[in-house]
Amino acid sequence: MQAAVIVFPGSNCDRDIAVALERASGQRPHMVWHKDSTVPEVDLIALPGGFSYGDYLRCGAIAAHSPVMRDVKARAQKGTAVLGICNGFQVLIESGLLPGGLLRNESLKYICKDVGLEVETHDSIFTRRYRNGQRVVFPIAHGDGNYFIDEDGRRRLEDEERIAFRYCDAMGQVTPEANPNGSVANIAGIYNRERNVLGMMPHPERLADPLLGGRDGAAMFDGLVEALA
């Protein structure tokens, strides 16, 4: 599996995701600068976490209009796998590849901690190595991860099984107390309709190696290699 990692000014998880992808695939990802107008031919495009353009205007809003995103959008629409993590999720939302909005956390605080997530469905190239309903632990680190979508939109996501992860407690229960940021229906990550684009606030790449304290995230990258190799 050959991957490309898009690097924006202010990205700060680009190396983390590159290390996780290389560990899983044995191939070093292309690092693609935001000013490039094309992305090399790859199986997976990753949009990393960070603070692209200093979070000016709205998180991800300026990055969504950077030159490279035109090609990322075209590739996504042609079926290339695209994974956006944290700021990458915000960029996917702002570029219109995923529905909804990401608002300031309900607490107004920047939250950096490990959270429990329920894998809603393993029916995707991203989650095929997990079980339906499995509880995993990934870290979150964001100030604007409060996912909003209107009622009709939420119902559509649920009917089409496009919710990838929900925040859950230690017992795997999806409860209001387990919701760290106020997201509608505890939503932590969603797919596009074609299921080749995943955006999520939690960071699987930050718990993909025992040295980091856990490897729940590694199965996502191993699954992608299996699906896209």
Partner: peptide, 14 residues
Amino acid sequence: TLKTGVLDPQGKAI
């Protein structure tokens, strides 16, 4: 401005 029905945590804090 945020649409009606969209939570505004900053507004609440203010």
